[in-house]
């Protein structure tokens, strides 16, 4: 195991035990106040747990009688906001890590340019932080964190403060640069977990409520939080002829290539239910068997395996839906987001 973290922080009621493999990305999901940030603080050396150990690549960072200060841990932190040093230009921001680790001015600038290139931000090198948009700033912050060549990367909701429009592209960038890096990703967004993480841990009330491979946890949620965030419809598969398992949607840039592993995501409320295929319509049609009906106020959630559709009570009654009924879920291609996995 690359990272082993056990920590008890009495004041915050947090007690966790996590392990992450070499090059693996672990997503920590959970509601506010569940203790996600506490875990990051313990790993980064910003918080000393009452009991516990942090071991990274065999080196004890925190433990009884051991305390490695934050700057010696090779653990980089990326927060919700870019937090670029306002008095330094973009290039110097990215060069900060190498420079602090003893690299010459020239070497560190070269490294900075290389990492800016990695996150598609080479053209921003000469800007000041205040001249950047939120998405650009976060790109630069990613480059800065990577340039420090950390052994562990901690991402604290890195996408949650950004404009929806820039999310897909930045997700893809993160996916690319996180590949093969030992990473802990704290997020609210199930899509981040799905696309960026190999495994997820769901935290509730300071404890790990559930853990496992991402798809497994989301498909068969056992914790309340996982069930709630898993409310999205997801179809995973490979990209063939512009569709995932026959479902067409809006693919985010960069567009997936033929045979790429992808996932199609859409909301239950975007799904219409028909008793027979609505011929001639541009919608995606999925033949399914109803497994369950769940009343939700003036709506009914119609479950068919791992897919769900939200209907009004009236519509559900008209369709005469019962478990075992064979129906068609239809969803417009414009309502389906397709991501590379």
């Amino acid at each position: 195991m690359s990272l082993q973290l056990t920590a008890t922080v009495d004041e915050r009621g947090v007690e966790v035990d996590l392990e992450i493999g070499e090059g693996e990305t672990l997503a920590i999901l959970g509601p506010n106040g569940a203790g996600k940030s506490t875990v990051l603080a313990v790993a980064a050396g910003l918080l000393r747990p009452d009991r516990g150990r942090v071991v990274l690549e065999g080196r004890e960072l925190t433990g009884p009688g051991t305390w490695v200060p934050p700057h010696d841990r090779r653990v980089a932190l990326l927060a919700q906001e870019p937090l670029l040093f306002p008095h330094l230009g973009v290039l110097d921001n990215v060069a900060f890590g190498p420079r602090s680790n003893g690299a010459s001015r020239r070497t560190s600038h070269e490294a900075a340019r290389r990492w800016l290139g990695e996150v598609d931000a080479a053209d921003l090198a000469d800007r000041r932080p205040r001249q950047l948009s939120g998405g650009q700033g976060q790109r630069v912050a990613v480059a800065r964190a990577l340039a420090a060549e950390p052994r562990l990367l901690l991402l604290d909701e890195p996408l949650s403060a950004l404009d929806v429009a820039v999310l897909p592209a930045l997700r893809q960038t993160l996916k690319r640069v996180l590949a093969g890096r030992t990473t802990v990703l704290v997020t609210h967004d199930v899509l981040d977990a799905l696309l960026l993480a190999d495994r997820v841990v769901v935290m509730e009330d300071g404890r790990v409520a559930e853990a496992g491979p991402t798809a497994e946890v989301l498909e068969r949620p056992r914790s309340a939080f996982a069930a709630r965030i898993a409310g999205l419809n997801m179809v995973a598969g490979t990209w063939r002829d512009g569709a995932v398992e026959g479902i067409r949607g809006i693919a985010s840039e960069p567009a997936p290539a033929e045979g790429d592993p992808v996932v199609a995501v859409f909301r239950p409320s975007a799904v219409s239910v028909f008793t027979s295929s609505p011929g001639g319509s541009p919608r995606n049609a999925l033949a399914v068997t109803v497994t369950d009906l769940e009343p939700r106020g003036d709506q009914v959630r119609v479950r068919a395996g791992h897919l769900a559709a939200d209907l009004t009570v009236q519509a559900a009654a008209e369709l005469d839906l019962v478990p075992g009924a064979r129906v068609v879920f239809a969803v417009k291609a414009s309502e389906v987001a397709v991501y590379r996995r």
Binding site: A44, L46, P69, P70, H71, D72, R73, R74, V75, A76, L77, A79, L83, F85, F96, G97, S100, N101, R144, A145, A148, P150, L154
Partner: peptide
């Protein structure tokens, strides 16, 4: 917050203070 980020990038306390 900036100081925490700088430390996580490997800057020793004196470097953080100065830079």
């Amino acid at each position: 917050r900036y100081e925490v980020v700088a430390a996580s990038l490997g800057a020793a306390p004196t470097t953080v203070f100065r830079r």
